[in-house]
């Protein structure tokens, strides 16, 4: 336990004056600004589906934001070890596996900060702009869990790439390409969407758009039944992927 505490404080000290918090805060602020620009034009009819609209639009925005944001966070935290060439010194004091886990834990803090801010932001906008749709706490919880889980799986990929690449161009390239793939896959049939890991924000979205009705008038939104079984399989697959990434990392020569 004391070793874990020491690892935690060692990482905490590395974060001093790195201003990493600015990344999730900045992106969350941008998300809020974007929402405000849209919500201020809402009619009474729109307010009756206000939360559903935000749940859906945030899933689209997450597909754009998150891959690059997570690539930036992972790169910012891992690049300090690469730039400083600290591996040999680190491994005389820490086990590589523990180092890999604690770094990932620190990156997850920024992810959870962002997803919590996003979920609370939906609630806040509902109150500020007078949404008439009733608040369903379960939907908010599912939204938070879903985007955090998908984000954590993507972060695992970025974490491995950032630690493995001497040149950070590869992880950032994967982040940009992932954002592209995730966004496009949303407009494809579900079977294609499921093949793209960056597109899972829309698969686990609690709200969706009925495009046939939308074509005939305003945006027709509806709540979908959350795919619990698929989500459980996704979590298991994500955990398996993390262990595989860790295994790959442990074989890296320092």
């Amino acid at each position: 336990m004391r070793t874990k505490q020491r690892l935690f404080w060692a990482e905490q000290k590395k974060m001093k004056r790195r201003f990493v918090w600015l990344v999730p805060i900045g992106f969350a602020a941008l998300l809020m600004l974007w929402s405000m620009a849209n919500i201020r034009n809402f009619t009474d009819a729109d307010r009756a589906f206000g939360y559903a609209y935000l749940f859906y639009s945030y899933c689209v925005m997450n597909a754009i934001f998150m891959p690059v944001m997570l690539a930036v966070v992972a790169s910012r935290l891992c690049d300090m070890e690469i730039k400083g060439n600290t591996w040999k010194l680190l491994y005389t004091m820490e086990k590589p596996g523990s180092f890999y886990d604690i770094k990932f834990f620190f990156e997850c803090r920024y992810l959870v900060c962002f997803t919590a801010a996003e979920t609370l932001g939906i609630l806040l906008f509902g109150k500020l702009f007078g949404f008439t749709e009733p608040v369903q706490a379960g939907r908010f919880l599912l939204h938070f869990l879903a985007i955090t889980a998908v984000g954590a799986v993507l972060l695992g990929i970025q974490h491995l790439l950032s630690l493995m690449s001497d040149n950070q161009i590869i992880p950032l390239l994967v982040g940009i390409a992932g954002g592209f793939l995730g966004l496009f896959s949303m407009y494809f049939p579900r079977i294609v969407n499921q093949l793209v890991i960056w597109g899972y924000f829309s698969i686990f979205s609690v709200a969706a758009v009925d495009w046939e009705k939308t074509a005939n008038g305003g945006m027709a939104l509806y709540y979908v039944d959350f795919p619990e079984v698929q989500f459980a399989v996704f979590l298991l697959a994500g955990a398996g992927l993390y262990l595989a990434e860790r295994w790959i990392y442990l074989r890296k020569e320092v």
């Binding site: 941008l30 690539a71 950070q168």
Partner: peptide, 22 residues
């Protein structure tokens, strides 16, 4: 000096850019 931060700024700038275009 960070490799990644300017790329994040570019994405944020692009999203803001859509508001300017609109």
């Amino acid at each position: 000096r960070s490799f990644a931060v300017p790329i994040g700024i570019a994405l944020a700038g692009s999203i803001l850019g859509f508001l300017f275009v609109s």
